[in-house]
């Protein structure tokens, strides 16, 4: 690692101010790795661990507030998360290893950088790391790469499992920065690459994520998180699916599906989801929905398999969420 200064602010205002010229660190499990690889070269680290943002508590509107500094482990095994938001617990536990989850925080999980090998390899061009230098993934190794929402500049994916569940649950992010506090809808938090793949979120300089807010409905009766990866545990998703549903008898009233491993952000298609409204729960409904969602998919030589894989994973996750095989 290159030398850097270390700063341990004790209040948010000081942290925000320091963050305009340094990098925030919470668990550090991704950032320190990137610093060892020389992908990140901060001159100063601003340690957020002394700001008191680690609690998990119920909110007045019946939802749940997840402190940004609560660890992934604490969150996944929290009794309220397990009982009312089991899809979130399932998704968190599908990611990383126990050691990493013990350190990794909720805020940091949102801000993970891509696992694209060209992004990690400083000898290689990468538009995300060095804007304008090129993207070798399109013609090269693209197994982990996007089939939806990518651009000519970048086909990297966001690696989080947790975020896929948060997108299905319609979470909100609370941030605090030099201009005060604001809330960001989860859908608007991560950005698609466009021609500026180096800008990955809608956070402004100095803004600190303080909490993730879950709405009251956690879809605890009808959910599934299904992850496809190259080994049984401790691997990033080729495709993952978070599915939640609202049922009346065998009739689907609402279905939400977020995909991981296929785009620069957890992917949802609200127009396609209208095909899940007031429909019978069956493989045809789910297949039609998957086809509509994947209609705009664009593949590369190394990831053509992802379209049929995503289709099958979506149908399977929706079947599990609606208990189709038990009907």
């Amino acid at each position: 690692m290159r030398p850097f200064k270390y700063n341990r602010p004790l209040d948010l205002a000081t942290a925000s101010n320091a963050g305009t010229s340094g990098s925030f660190i919470a668990g550090g499990t991704n950032l320190l790795d990137l610093m060892k690889c020389d992908v990140e070269q901060p001159s100063q680290l601003v340690d957020l661990n002394h700001l008191g943002l680690g609690s998990i508590s119920e909110t007045a509107d019946g939802g749940l507030e997840l402190g940004a500094l609560a660890t992934n482990t604490t969150t996944a095994y929290h009794p309220i998360v397990q009982e009312r938001y089991p899809i979130l617990s399932r998704a968190i536990l599908a990611g990383a290893s126990p050691q990493l989850r013990n350190k990794a925080t909720n805020g940091g999980n949102l801000l993970q950088r891509t696992r694209c090998p060209y992004f990690f390899d400083t000898d290689s061009p990468c538009n995300k790391r060095v804007p304008g230098s090129g993207c070798p993934a399109k013609e090269g190794y693209s197994k982990l790469h996007a089939i939806l929402g990518a651009s000519d500049s970048c086909i990297a994916t966001h690696p989080s499992d947790m975020c896929v569940a948060l997108r299905a649950l319609d979470a909100t992010i609370r941030v605090s920065g030099p201009h005060g506090e604001r809330r960001i809808e989860f859908a608007d938090f991560h950005r698609l690459p466009g021609d500026q793949p180096e800008i990955e979120t809608s956070l402004e300089k100095g803004e600190v994520i303080t909490a993730i807010l879950l709405p009251a409905d956690g879809f605890a009766d009808n959910f599934a998180y299904f992850k496809v990866r190259e080994r049984a545990s401790y691997a990033f998703a080729l495709v993952s699916v978070a599915a939640v549903a609202r049922l009346e008898g065998n009739q689907l009233k609402e279905g939400r599906v977020a995909l991981g491993g296929v785009a620069a952000k957890p992917w949802r298609d609200l127009e396609a989801e209208s095909l899940l409204c007031d429909q019978p729960c069956n493989a045809e409904t789910f297949g039609n929905f998957a086809d509509a969602l994947l209609q705009s998919a664009k593949t590369y030589p190394g990831n053509r398999f992802k379209v049929p894989m995503a289709r099958a994973a979506i149908v399977r996750a929706l079947s599990e969420a609606t208990h189709l095989n038990q009907l």
């Binding site: 550090g28 499990t29 320190l32 790795d33 060892k36 050691q99 990493l100 350190k103």
Partner: peptide, 27 residues
């Protein structure tokens, strides 16, 4: 590996297992 991928450096920090290679001592 020194990158949190292999677990060889696992220690118990306040009783919890972590990768010591991805933790700054100063923190």
């Amino acid at each position: 590996c020194d990158h949190g991928q292999c677990g060889a450096c696992t220690i118990l920090l306040n009783g919890q297992r972590i990768n010591s290679c991805l933790s700054l001592a100063v923190m």
